[in-house]
Write a protein that binds this DNA or RNA. Structure first.
Length: 483
DNA sequence: TGAAATGTTGGGGCG
DNA sequence: ACGCCCCAACATTTC
C-alpha cells in the first residue's frame, strides 16, 4: 500500500498534470494538498485581486477532485512542516509536485527535496512548454533577444500531447471524512482549514463585480481557450490592439495559476498542423505571445536578480525622479489628466485586468513621462492584476523602461494622444472608463487640455500632471546621460 | 510592440 | 505653355 501526497501550487488542474498523473500511476492512495504559506513564497504575498482568483480556482479544483471521488486538503503555514505532518498523519511515502520558477519557490523546493528525502519527492513540469534550462544558446548562455529564442523554440512545437485527466483519483474514507468533519481532536495533529478560513476573499464585496466576466478554474480556462480559438484567434493580429474590442485571448490568469497548460494551448492551436509555419497570421501572432511568456520565465530563471535590478547594467544609475509620491498616486488612481492612461488605470483597479496595448501606454507614461522607476509600476501591477505573474510582469516593465531583454530602445517614448487616436479612434474605451469625458468632442477627447478653460471647468477632469512634449524631452535627456 | 524632425516628390494654383 | 511656389503625402533619419 503506497500513499502519495500531491502538492498543488501553480498547477490548479487535473488535465495535463504530470505530478498528479505520476502519483495516480505509482500510488494506491492520493492525498491532494494545498498549502497557504506566509512570507514571500505564495499566498501571503499575493495582491488582493490574485487572492480572489486563487480562492475561486481552489474551489473549482476541490469540486473537480470531489467529482472524481477525491478531495482537497487545505493547510496554512510553513510548507515543509505541514507536508511532514501530513505524511506522518496518513503514513504517506511519496511526494509529487509540479515546478515553480521564481527564485523564492526554487529555494523552498530545493530545501524540501533535501529535508523530506524519506518521501522521495518527485517534481515535474506543468507550467511551461519547455524547461528554461533546455533552451540556451550554443555557448550555453541564456537568450536575451526574443527572435532567436523564438526560432530555437519553434523547432519543437507543438511538443508533446497533453495528458488526460485521471478518471478516478484513489481516496479513502479517512481523508474525505477528515476534510468534512470539524473534530477538534484530529485538528490537533493536522490543523486542516476550510477554504474560507484561508481568508483569500476580502471582507468587503468589491471583488464580486471584478470576477463577473471570468470563470476561475480548469473548466473556465478550457472554455476560454476554445472560444478564443474558434472566434478570435484568426483576427488576433489586428484586434488584439484595440482595447475596446474583446480580441485578446484572456488566458493570462488561467495560465498563471496553471488552470490550463501551455502544452494544451499549443496542441489545440496547432490542431493537427505540423508546426507554426502552417498557422494563419493571427494564430501565428498568438503563438508568439505564448512563447513570450516562456521567454519571460527563461529570463526569470537565468537572471533572477532582474526582479528588482535592471538587466542592462547601464540603467543602474538612471536619474529617476526622487520625490514622486503625488504623481505615482495620481497614476495609480487614474487621475493623470491623460485620458487613455486614466482609462487603463481605472480599468485595472475596477476589474483586475488591463488591455495589453494600454499596459504599454500606461507603462511608458509612468517610466518616461513621469520618470518614476519601473519597479513602482511593477509592484502596482503585481498588487492589482488578477494575472499578476512575476516573470511576465518583470519582463514587461523592464521592456517598457528600456532596461530589459529585447527592450524598446530608450528613445521609444509613446505619445498617449497618438496611441489613443490610433487604437481607440472612436474613444469607446476612454468613454467607458473616464465617463467625465463622454460628451467631449471626438477631436479633443484624447487631449482635453486643448479645450477652452470654460469647457474644461464643466468637465471635472484633472489637468495633465506634466506637459507631454516637455516630459518627452526630459526623458530623452535622462536616457542620454546613461548612454 | 514609436514619434518627431527632416527630406523628397508631385499635383495644382497662379503669374 | 512654362516655371515657380505651396504644401500635402509619403519616405527617411534621427532621437
Amino acid at each position: 500500500m503506497k500513499t502519495g501526497i500531491v502538492w498543488f501550487r501553480q498547477d490548479l488542474r487535473l488535465s495535463d498534470n504530470p505530478a498528479l498523473r505520476a502519483a495516480c500511476k505509482e500510488c494506491d492512495l492520493i492525498v491532494p494538498l494545498f498549502v497557504a504559506e506566509p512570507g514571500s513564497q505564495s499566498v501571503a504575498n499575493l495582491g488582493a485581486a490574485s487572492k480572489v482568483w486563487l480562492h475561486h480556482s481552489l474551489r473549482a479544483l476541490k469540486d473537480s477532485l470531489e467529482a472524481r471521488g477525491s478531495t482537497l486538503l487545505f493547510l496554512e503555514g510553513d510548507a515543509e512542516e505541514l507536508i511532514a505532518a501530513v505524511a506522518q498523519f496518513f503514513k504517506a511515502d511519496a511526494l509529487y509536485w509540479n515546478r515553480c520558477y521564481d527564485p523564492a519557490a526554487i529555494k523552498r523546493d530545493k530545501k524540501i527535496k533535501k529535508q523530506l528525502q524519506q518521501l522521495n519527492p518527485k517534481s515535474f513540469n506543468a507550467l511551461l512548454n519547455e524547461e528554461p534550462w533546455n533552451t540556451v544558446k550554443a555557448d550555453g548562455t541564456a537568450y536575451k533577444v526574443f527572435t532567436p529564442y523564438w526560432n530555437a523554440r519553434t523547432k519543437s512545437l507543438p511538443g508533446e500531447k497533453p495528458l488526460a485527466a485521471p478518471s478516478t483519483i484513489a481516496c479513502s474514507e479517512q481523508i474525505r471524512g477528515l476534510v468534512n468533519s470539524r473534530q477538534k481532536s484530529r485538528q490537533k495533529k493536522l490543523p486542516l482549514k476550510h477554504l474560507d478560513q484561508l481568508s483569500l476573499l476580502p471582507k468587503l464585496t468589491w471583488h464580486e463585480p471584478m470576477m463577473s466576466g471570468w470563470t476561475a478554474g480548469e473548466n473556465g480556462a478550457k472554455r476560454t481557450l476554445d472560444a478564443f480559438l474558434k472566434k478570435n484567434a484568426s483576427d488576433y493580429k489586428q484586434y488584439r490592439d484595440i482595447p475596446s474590442v474583446d480580441g485578446t485571448s484572456r488566458l493570462s490568469t488561467h495560465l498563471h495559476f496553471g488552470e490550463i497548460s501551455p502544452r494544451t494551448v499549443f496542441y489545440k492551436l496547432l490542431n493537427g498542423r505540423r508546426d507554426v509555419s502552417e498557422l494563419n497570421e493571427g494564430e501565428h501572432t498568438f503563438a508568439k505571445e505564448v512563447i513570450w511568456r516562456e521567454f519571460a520565465y527563461s529570463l526569470l530563471f537565468h537572471f533572477p536578480h532582474t526582479i528588482t535590478k535592471p538587466l542592462n547594467e547601464k540603467f543602474a544609475n538612471f536619474p529617476w525622479e526622487s520625490r514622486y509620491g503625488k504623481h505615482l498616486r495620481a497614476w495609480q488612481t487614474g487621475q493623470t489628466g491623460v485620458p487613455i492612461v486614466d482609462a487603463g488605470m481605472r480599468q485595472l483597479y475596477a476589474t483586475g485586468w488591463m488591455h495589453n496595448r494600454v499596459r504599454m501606454i500606461v507603462g511608458s507614461y509612468l517610466v518616461k513621462n513621469l520618470l518614476i522607476p519601473w519597479q513602482e509600476g511593477e509592484r502596482w501591477f503585481r498588487d492589482t492584476l488578477l494575472d499578476a505573474d512575476l516573470a511576465s510582469n518583470v519582463m514587461g516593465w523592464q521592456w517598457v523602461a528600456g532596461s530589459g531583454a529585447d527592450a524598446a530602445p530608450y528613445f521609444r517614448v509613446f505619445n498617449p494622444v497618438l496611441q489613443g487616436e490610433k487604437f481607440d479612434a472612436k474613444a469607446e474605451y476612454v468613454k467607458q472608463w473616464v465617463p467625465e469625458l463622454r460628451n467631449v468632442e471626438l477631436r479633443y477627447i484624447h487631449k482635453p487640455w486643448e479645450l477652452t478653460s470654460a469647457q474644461k471647468r464643466s468637465l471635472n477632469y484633472p489637468e495633465p500632471l506634466v506637459d507631454l512634449k516637455q516630459s518627452r524631452q526630459r526623458a530623452l535627456m535622462s536616457y542620454d546621460r546613461i548612454k
